[in-house]
Nucleic acid binder design. Structure first.
Lengths: 356, 356
DNA sequence: ATGAAAGCGCTAACAG
DNA sequence: CTGTTAGCGCTTTCAT
């Protein structure tokens, strides 16, 4: 079995011959260029229809040097946060005139490099990358004319970059919990084999928020997870509770960890939110599948996708200026898991805003 | 701002000049062809490195007629089932020599047509499509030389197609529930604005399973949801319970509906699994975030992805035979939500198998 | 307003 | 084993 020979596809020149005009005229019609008489246009369009002509995009690309595609390089497509981000990018990309090539990097430095490579051999016009292995130094060493926009927290100053204000969001979580009467708030969690990720600023916001309130170090607790799974999170909190940890709230690095926290608390016989409040991060849809439903920090993923696309489009169009760092809005969505005890009300949005 | 002029990129011919050899030799080196002396190879590779040459894939495509890409057209990237499928396809595609272009069709017939179109203008070599709006008739009317493989239930005999045996899986669910002592099992649910989807065979399996057991129609119940959301599912079951529906098990069309069922049962004061068992479908990861954790029909998504890629690759390589319909394995993963009352054991896999 | 022809960068058939 | 050359299908000056 071998690839079939080139299909006898209808080409531009065939349409031209059929319509009795030049290639240029057909091209003009295809591109809706002006300077084509209505009669001519009608004639050419009839030929196009009769012959079933479809322009060959590869040839067009070779001629124009643009592919109309961009790569979206994400660590794991099936993680709800990335899946939701992918949806928004896929939804908005056509508005900027692009198709989206998915590159899954699977937490591998090689795959992240490969994704960048595909942007360098003309497969795509630019790349949206959420790095977890590449360091800011490695990224900074990339050729500066490579159209690249970074998502996530790990970015050198020279590169374009979109994120939410993690520190502010973390502080808002603390404020919310304290307003709800919580006093001993744990952070769940940092991870042993730390990737370059968003934990640091969130933890920083946790401490800053507690600093403002004069909470002593003794009333703080940072729990470490073995990896980024629900199970690791559950294990970390379960162990701490078994060791006698006294808390009335858990602020989590991401929704998955919050789900683990719910499980650990359930097993330990603590009620949520009566005994312990839980807040997640990312506001992924499945986090609302839990019981009680999770409060969570909600990045405006739609805004994130559009901001990233805008920056990338500008780079592709030739913008060569300094790295731009855009903050998109976020909110804290309060649901049952962090209601004040006795308050069974519906979800309330606490806007904590910020725009960069 | 306008697109930058063509970058002064290093071309094959530049490498040839630099190395003092012909283009053909450079090409041979790039493609690891034999018939190149080691000395020659070394010299050319040095030039490639020094000049930083990267082959222009667009040009290669125009010359070879192959793009090395295929489209994965899925309704909604952020639905866990599709996100997980996308991950497996993205993971396996490189083994077949392809990159994956994501096409999100958003439950729109136009977008499904557009995805097929991109396969016809040379953007990709073939397409993996999960249709929900296109009818088997429309798909059957497509040119037969279009490399296309369908996912999901909606497929004309002429097209290649991969799925699990939904009827058998549904029967296995019934068998499991009956084995666990359940007698009044509801099906949740069909949907008002039915897409061409997998509900029909699952419902068929539900009835066949109950037929085998001699369960009278009076002890069956098919609940209708307003749409494919958790909320609609919860509403449908809540309403039925309020109307006095007596059941001890719910078999759900998909995990989302099962999550809605858990909520409805909780609100109605029924315990899961003690009073009512719940089984979902698709075994998506977030379904395990619920409490109790969901039992679910688990299609072998990895096998699904690979089978689909294999069929598509064969089509791209020129296979022109009749439509092939491949069944991939599935299992029923039993977790807490459908344990016999009093049995708190861990998850158990019931293999129900089948391979096509 | 329309036509002719020169590329875009690579591949592959054919010579040598 | 290596070099030459004619395309792949479209875009795009530059004449007309």
């Amino acid at each position: 079995m071998r690839p079939p020979g080139p299909q006898a596809r209808v080409r531009l020149v065939d349409v031209a011959a059929h319509a009795g005009v030049s290639m240029k005229t057909v091209s003009n019609v295809v591109h809706d260029n002006p300077h084509v008489s209505p009669a001519m246009r009608a004639r050419v369009e009839r030929s196009i229809d009769e012959l079933g002509y479809r322009p060959n995009l590869t040839a067009r690309r070779l001629a124009t040097g643009r592919t109309g595609m961009l790569a979206l390089a994400l660590p794991e497509m099936d993680q709800p946060y990335y899946a939701e981000l992918a949806r928004h990018v896929a939804e908005a990309a056509p508005e900027f005139g692009y198709r989206v090539l998915m590159e899954q990097t699977l937490l591998s430095a090689d795959d992240e490099h490969a994704a960048i490579g595909s942007s360098q051999n003309g497969v795509v016009d630019g790349i949206l990358l959420h790095p977890v292995r590449l360091t800011p130094e490695e990224i900074g060493a990339l050729p500066r004319d490579l159209p690249l926009v970074l998502l996530g927290e790990s970015a050198p100053p020279a590169a374009d970059h979109v994120m939410i204000d993690n520190v502010a969001a973390a502080r808002a979580v603390i404020q919310h919990l304290v307003d709800a009467g919580r006093r001993r708030i744990a952070f769940l969690g940092t991870v042993v084999d730390q990737l370059s990720d968003a934990t640091a600023p969130r933890l920083q916001g946790y401490h800053e928020g507690l600093d403002d309130l004069g909470t002593p170090q003794a009333d703080r607790c940072v729990l470490v997870c073995a990896d980024y799974s629900v199970e690791a999170s559950e294990a970390a909190l379960s162990r701490a509770l078994a060791d006698g940890l006294q808390i009335d709230a858990v602020m989590c690095r991401e929704d998955r960890f919050a789900v683990g926290a719910l499980r650990a608390l359930l097993r330990a016989g603590r009620r949520v939110p009566e005994d312990v409040a839980v807040v997640g991060w990312d506001d992924t849809e499945p986090a609302r599948w839990s019981h009680p439903q999770l409060s969570s920090v909600a990045p405006d993923k739609r805004a994130l996708a559009r901001a990233a696309l805008r920056l990338l489009h500008e780079r592709i169009m030739g913008y060569q200026g300094a790295g731009r760092h855009v903050l998109v809005p976020h909110r804290l969505v309060v649901r049952a898991s962090s209601q004040p005890a006795g308050d069974g009300g519906d979800a309330v949005d606490r806007r904590t805003s910020s725009r960069g």
